[in-house]
Measured scan of single mutants.
Amino acid sequence: NQASVVANQLIPINTALTLVMMRSEVVTPVGIPAKDIPRLVSMQVNRAVPLGTTLMPDMVKGYA
């Protein structure tokens, strides 16, 4: 199973992502692939993302 990107903490709306905010985990449904973590750094979330939430492409500005 492919690992997805999961929030390692509460990420407030419009926050630029950093490595410490994200972890990889095998979850259902599948979200953004963990291999894309380096690409996500500095991108902003367009909503508040609670701890443990799988990041989906529509949550990150400029990803999709």
Results as ranks from 00 to 15, higher is better:
41 V>L: 13
3 A>K: 09
2 Q>S: 10
42 S>R: 08
13 I>V: 13
63 Y>Q: 05
39 R>G: 09
64 A>P: 13
10 L>K: 13
15 T>L: 09
27 V>K: 09
59 M>S: 08
57 P>V: 08
12 P>A: 14
44 Q>R: 07
12 P>V: 07
38 P>E: 14
29 P>N: 05
51 L>T: 10
13 I>E: 15
25 E>V: 06
43 M>N: 04
38 P>G: 11
10 L>I: 13
54 T>R: 04
41 V>Q: 11
32 I>H: 01
55 L>Y: 01
49 V>T: 05
2 Q>K: 11
53 T>L: 12
61 K>W: 15
22 M>T: 02
7 A>N: 01
18 T>G: 05
22 M>D: 01
21 M>D: 04
51 L>G: 13
64 A>T: 15
27 V>G: 03
58 D>I: 11
31 G>W: 02
61 K>Y: 14
9 Q>G: 07
62 G>V: 05
26 V>A: 15
39 R>T: 15
61 K>V: 15
31 G>F: 01
27 V>T: 15
4 S>K: 01
33 P>V: 14
21 M>V: 05
15 T>D: 04
37 I>V: 07
8 N>H: 10
50 P>Q: 15
2 Q>R: 08
61 K>G: 08
56 M>S: 11
22 M>C: 03
54 T>E: 01
53 T>R: 10
6 V>A: 03
2 Q>P: 10
58 D>C: 05
35 K>I: 08
30 V>R: 10
46 N>T: 10
48 A>N: 11
25 E>P: 00
27 V>W: 03
22 M>R: 00
17 L>Q: 00
48 A>K: 11
43 M>D: 04
35 K>S: 14
35 K>V: 14
20 V>M: 15
24 S>N: 11
1 N>V: 11
11 I>L: 11
12 P>F: 05
11 I>N: 00
42 S>M: 10
21 M>L: 08
8 N>W: 05
27 V>S: 06
44 Q>V: 07
7 A>F: 02
47 R>E: 10
11 I>K: 01
12 P>Q: 06
45 V>W: 00
39 R>D: 07
17 L>M: 10
50 P>V: 10
39 R>N: 09
33 P>Y: 06
28 T>D: 13
11 I>C: 03
48 A>C: 05
1 N>E: 15
17 L>T: 00
43 M>V: 04
32 I>Q: 00
53 T>V: 14
14 N>D: 09
1 N>Q: 11
16 A>E: 08
22 M>P: 00
60 V>Y: 01
40 L>P: 01
59 M>C: 04
31 G>S: 02
40 L>T: 01
60 V>E: 00
54 T>V: 09
64 A>K: 03
16 A>G: 11
6 V>H: 02
46 N>Q: 11
12 P>S: 08
49 V>M: 06
30 V>I: 13
6 V>K: 04
13 I>L: 12
1 N>S: 15
37 I>G: 04
4 S>E: 01
3 A>M: 15
36 D>M: 08
30 V>C: 04
40 L>E: 01
37 I>P: 00
40 L>R: 00
63 Y>A: 04
38 P>W: 10
52 G>N: 14
56 M>G: 05
55 L>W: 00
34 A>I: 06
7 A>L: 04
55 L>H: 01
6 V>N: 01
48 A>Q: 14
35 K>D: 08
19 L>R: 12
53 T>G: 15
25 E>A: 15
34 A>N: 09
51 L>R: 06
29 P>T: 07
13 I>M: 11
58 D>L: 09
30 V>K: 11
48 A>G: 10
16 A>P: 14
39 R>A: 13
32 I>C: 03
15 T>F: 06
2 Q>L: 15
34 A>P: 05
55 L>R: 00
19 L>F: 07
9 Q>E: 15
55 L>M: 13
46 N>M: 11
6 V>D: 00
38 P>M: 05
35 K>E: 09
52 G>Y: 06
50 P>W: 09
38 P>S: 08
4 S>I: 01
28 T>H: 15
59 M>R: 03
37 I>R: 08
18 T>W: 03
24 S>F: 14
52 G>K: 04
20 V>Y: 13
50 P>K: 12
63 Y>E: 03
42 S>G: 14
4 S>Q: 02
10 L>C: 04
56 M>I: 09
10 L>V: 13
14 N>G: 15
7 A>H: 01
53 T>Q: 14
61 K>N: 15
30 V>M: 10
21 M>Q: 06
21 M>S: 05
37 I>E: 03
21 M>K: 03
59 M>W: 10
9 Q>T: 14
11 I>A: 01
45 V>A: 06
58 D>N: 11
24 S>T: 12
41 V>Y: 07
42 S>K: 10
50 P>F: 09
37 I>D: 01
26 V>I: 14
28 T>W: 15
31 G>K: 00
33 P>C: 04
30 V>E: 12
3 A>N: 11
25 E>H: 09
59 M>H: 07
49 V>W: 02
23 R>C: 04
4 S>H: 00
38 P>D: 10
48 A>R: 10
19 L>D: 11
63 Y>S: 04
30 V>Q: 14
37 I>T: 06
44 Q>W: 07
53 T>F: 12
28 T>G: 08
26 V>W: 11
47 R>I: 14
37 I>S: 05
20 V>Q: 11
42 S>Q: 11
62 G>D: 13
20 V>T: 14
63 Y>M: 06
55 L>G: 01
43 M>W: 06
24 S>Y: 08
44 Q>A: 15
19 L>C: 04
6 V>T: 06
6 V>C: 03
45 V>I: 08
63 Y>W: 13
62 G>R: 05
28 T>N: 13
34 A>R: 05
45 V>D: 00
64 A>D: 12
47 R>M: 15
16 A>K: 06
52 G>P: 00
63 Y>K: 03
62 G>Q: 11
30 V>D: 09
33 P>I: 08
27 V>L: 09
50 P>L: 13
55 L>C: 02
59 M>Q: 05
33 P>E: 08
60 V>I: 13
32 I>Y: 02
32 I>T: 00
37 I>H: 03
46 N>K: 08
47 R>L: 13
23 R>G: 10
17 L>V: 04
33 P>A: 15
12 P>D: 12
38 P>I: 06
48 A>P: 14
31 G>Q: 02
22 M>N: 01
40 L>C: 03
56 M>H: 10
64 A>F: 07
28 T>K: 15
61 K>Q: 12
57 P>A: 14
40 L>D: 00
63 Y>I: 04
56 M>T: 11
21 M>E: 02
45 V>C: 04
36 D>G: 05
3 A>F: 12
3 A>S: 12
47 R>K: 07
17 L>C: 02
42 S>N: 13
34 A>Y: 06
51 L>Q: 14
23 R>H: 06
17 L>K: 00
7 A>D: 00
21 M>Y: 05
48 A>S: 10
34 A>L: 04
17 L>A: 00
45 V>P: 03
11 I>R: 00
35 K>P: 07
4 S>G: 05
35 K>H: 11
64 A>Y: 08
32 I>V: 08
59 M>T: 07
61 K>T: 14
12 P>G: 07
30 V>T: 15
46 N>F: 10
11 I>D: 00
44 Q>F: 07
57 P>H: 13
15 T>Q: 09
2 Q>E: 09
22 M>G: 01
11 I>V: 10
44 Q>S: 13
35 K>Q: 12
34 A>T: 09
14 N>A: 05
59 M>Y: 11
50 P>R: 12
5 V>A: 09
25 E>C: 04
1 N>G: 11
39 R>P: 03
18 T>L: 08
51 L>F: 11
45 V>S: 06
3 A>C: 04
63 Y>T: 04
61 K>S: 12
5 V>C: 03
53 T>Y: 10
63 Y>C: 03
1 N>L: 15
62 G>W: 05
50 P>E: 07
44 Q>M: 14
43 M>S: 07
49 V>G: 00
60 V>Q: 00
19 L>G: 09
47 R>A: 09
15 T>A: 09
37 I>N: 01
32 I>W: 02
56 M>D: 06
15 T>R: 06
38 P>K: 06
27 V>I: 10
22 M>S: 01
35 K>A: 15
12 P>I: 07
12 P>Y: 10
60 V>C: 03
29 P>Y: 04
1 N>K: 11
63 Y>V: 04
24 S>W: 08
6 V>F: 02
14 N>P: 01
5 V>M: 02
52 G>R: 05
45 V>R: 00
44 Q>E: 12
34 A>D: 14
62 G>A: 12
11 I>Y: 02
3 A>V: 13
16 A>Q: 09
55 L>I: 10
57 P>T: 13
9 Q>S: 08
42 S>L: 13
9 Q>H: 09
39 R>C: 04
33 P>R: 06
17 L>H: 00
25 E>K: 15
41 V>S: 04
20 V>S: 14
63 Y>N: 04
34 A>V: 13
29 P>C: 04
16 A>N: 09
29 P>K: 05
21 M>T: 03
46 N>Y: 11
5 V>Q: 01
52 G>Q: 04
44 Q>C: 03
54 T>P: 07
32 I>E: 00
14 N>Y: 08
7 A>K: 01
